[in-house]
Simulated scan of single mutants.
Amino acid sequence: MTTEQIAKRLAEYCAKGEFEAAQKELYADDVVSVEPYETPAFPKEEKGLDNIIEKGRKFESMIEEAHGITVGEPVVTGNVFSFVMSMDLTMKERGRAKWEELCVYTVKDGKIVSEHFFM
């Protein structure tokens, strides 16, 4: 797949909240994930597909209810793409919150090799 095809496919998955399916299909085994900042729940950086899938499962276990996810149109340049993702979630023990982040991805050899989130 081209970077543009991967970008569109990932945006479709994210809009449906199907993050693990996207990771299994589109991510490289040695992918790196970088969060905007370290939290007690998550490290600033995570390496490896299995670890990133586990991080996603942990995040999903913290959600009481998902009210909506929107994903902007991907912007692609070379082997990098980005989109804005907004999530309206009720978190267990924390209440409802709306989050918006810029998601930036790098592709190599037809797979996502890094994801970097900015809030």
Rank of each mutant, 00 (worst) to 15 (best):
E93Y: 10
K98F: 07
T39W: 04
F81S: 06
T106I: 04
G95W: 09
I52T: 04
A41P: 03
S86W: 08
L89P: 00
H116A: 09
K58D: 05
W99C: 04
G56W: 01
D88C: 05
E115P: 08
F83I: 03
T39F: 10
L89T: 03
R96A: 05
D50I: 04
G78V: 07
K47E: 10
G72L: 11
V76W: 07
F83T: 01
T90V: 13
D50H: 05
I52D: 09
V80N: 04
K44V: 13
E54F: 08
G56P: 07
A97I: 04
A66S: 13
G95R: 01
V75K: 14
P74I: 07
K92H: 07
E100P: 02
S82E: 09
K55R: 15
G56Y: 02
T70R: 14
P74H: 11
E101L: 04
K108C: 03
K92R: 14
F83M: 10
K111T: 00
D88L: 03
K92V: 11
V80L: 01
R57T: 11
K58P: 01
K44S: 10
A41V: 07
M85V: 13
V84N: 02
T77Y: 12
S82W: 05
E45N: 06
M87N: 00
Y37C: 10
E100D: 14
I53M: 03
K108H: 15
E93N: 15
K47C: 01
F42I: 11
